[in-house]
Simulated assay, not measured.
Amino acid sequence: MSAPALRLGTRRSLLARTQSGHVADLVRARLGREVELVEVTTDGDRSQASNTSLVGSSSTGVFVSALRDALLADEVDLVVHSLKDLPTAPHAGLALAAVPTREDSRDVLVARDGLTLGELPVGSRLGTGSPRRAAQVAALGLGLEIVPIRGNIDTRVGKVTAGELDAVVLARAGLARIDRLDLVTETLDPLQVLPAPGQGALAVECRESDTDLVAALGEHLDDAGTRAAVLAERAVLATLEGGCSAPIGALGEVVEGEDGDELWVRAVALSPDGALSVRSSAAGRLDDAVGVGTRLGEEMLADGAGQLGQPGPVDTQTEQGEER
């Protein structure tokens, strides 16, 4: 008798269903298990559909929580998140079973007339919902007006095609997954704009108690280099969150060292206006990814990263959901 189909919980957005479908295909091919997608509708989805805001809450947090609630209620067997949306603290009863091979983690520009960031005239209106992107673009000193925006990929790009904005900054991974890289006018060098911790990576979660499924997903879907990189990035973020409310970017990469592969991590914390920043990097073993990231975060705090933020909470962890 064949095993029952695994129920994979997904949000209804195009990007969420595409990401979930990608993981479903991996499970079918590598675990030999059938998978059915189960739609989980969240308050965040309903809010976006009606063009209203979720007052007093993070839409990203709503999306993540709804999927996790469905897991814990045994309505689904596994879920897929954009890893950059996940809080850094572990969630009781759930396991991060797999981190598949990462998409390109960089940010991209979608601008009118095919322009690059450096070609945008002074005073051009650039939209982003991310404090991290806003601060790093401002730090380049290009004289652009940074406009806060919300919404999915089509909503944001639509503001450019409608002439409301001259450009928007998005995550390359999201556009790649929905086959819309033709929109990109420039891929931003991490030397200019470091991505969010975990950007471009997917997180596959299931219940801790489903030990066989946790083991199978880890064995067949997990990519060791991607996991090490994102663990280090998230460790930087977790360390800085303890004493820093500044926008944060981080990127871990597996590079060739003298004794084999090693992990190299770069990070930046900025004042919200981009005028001040603390940048640093560190290297270490892949099997000490959390340690590498933690030590880097501690070094940045010692260098003054904790004094860069503004009064009150700044959303350094999330960027309005998914790979936008």
Score class of each variant (00 low, 15 high):
Val160Glu: 07
Arg172Val: 07
Asp166Pro: 08
Ala167Trp: 06
Val169Gln: 06
Ala162Gly: 14
Leu126Gly: 02
Gly158Asn: 08
Glu145Leu: 14
Arg172Ile: 00
Gly143Trp: 03
Thr161Ile: 05
Arg177Tyr: 07
Gly151Met: 13
Ser130Asn: 02
Pro121Asp: 14
Gly151His: 08
Leu142Trp: 12
Gly129Thr: 04
Arg133Met: 10
Val160Met: 08
Pro131Ile: 04
Arg133Pro: 07
Gly129Ile: 00
Leu140Cys: 09
Asp154Val: 14
Ala176Lys: 00
Pro121His: 09
Leu144His: 12
Val169Trp: 02
Gly123Gln: 06
Gly141Asp: 03
Arg125Lys: 15
Gly127Ile: 13
Pro148Cys: 06
Leu165Ser: 14
Glu119Gln: 10
Leu144Gln: 12
Val157Ala: 08
Gly123Glu: 07
Arg177Val: 13
Ala167Lys: 04
Arg125Val: 03
Val157Phe: 04
Ala138Ser: 15
Val147Asn: 05
Pro131Val: 13
Leu144Ala: 12
Ala167Val: 03
Arg150Gln: 09
Leu175Gly: 02
Pro131Tyr: 03
Val160Phe: 10
Leu140Pro: 08
Asp179Cys: 01
Leu175Asn: 03
Leu170Trp: 07
Ala167Ser: 12
Ile178Pro: 01
Gly174Leu: 01
Val147His: 06
Val169Met: 04
Glu164Trp: 09
Gly151Ile: 04
Val157Lys: 04
Val168Glu: 07
Ile178Trp: 03
Arg172Leu: 06
Leu144Phe: 12
Arg172Cys: 01
Gly127Tyr: 07
Val157Asp: 02
Lys159His: 15
Ala135Met: 00
Leu117Ile: 01
Gln136Ala: 01
Val122Glu: 14
Leu120Met: 12
Val137Gly: 03
Leu120Pro: 00
Leu142Glu: 08
Val122Thr: 11
Pro131Thr: 10
Ile153Arg: 00
Arg177His: 10
Ala139Phe: 00
Asp154His: 11
Leu165Lys: 09
Arg177Leu: 15
Gly118Met: 01
Ala135Leu: 02
Ala135Phe: 07
Thr155Arg: 13
Glu119Asp: 12
Arg156Val: 10
Val168Cys: 07
Thr161Trp: 14
Leu165Asn: 12
Gly129Ser: 03
Lys159Pro: 13
Arg150Trp: 04
Gly118Ala: 13
Ser130Asp: 11
